[in-house]
């Protein structure tokens, strides 16, 4: 998953999409994660970082992460792959 180049992420939790002009807000952990994604961390790295730091179990985080990335995709902040490629 890659964040598009046109997406600007500010340190206080705001996201601006220069392609569409839309703005978004993040909670602190959302900001932490989107920054890791933008820095090309993969899911395993992100999971390890979060699990080490926060009081959350593996499966719960995986579920929340899946929902979060779905929303990033939905808001067109990430590169869109053809969902029917089944890769």
């Amino acid at each position: 998953m890659q964040i598009l180049e046109e997406i600007k992420i500010s340190d206080n939790g705001f996201v601006f999409n220069a392609l569409t002009g839309e703005s978004f807000s993040l909670n602190p952990i959302g900001l932490e994660i989107i920054k890791m994604i933008a820095a090309n961390s993969d899911f395993d790295e992100i999971r390890k970082t979060i699990l080490d730091k926060y009081d959350v179990d593996d499966l719960s985080f995986e579920k929340d992460f899946y929902e979060f990335s779905t929303m990033l995709k939905h808001y067109q902040l990430t590169q869109q792959n053809n969902p029917l490629n089944f890769v």
Binding site: V15, E32, I34, D55
Partner: peptide, 19 residues
């Protein structure tokens, strides 16, 4: 000591409508 966890959230800011 681990920090309190909260699920990650992103939401769209809609102009005109209070977010």
């Amino acid at each position: 000591e681990k920090l309190n966890y909260e699920k990650p959230i992103i939401s769209k800011i809609t102009a005109g409508v209070p977010n």
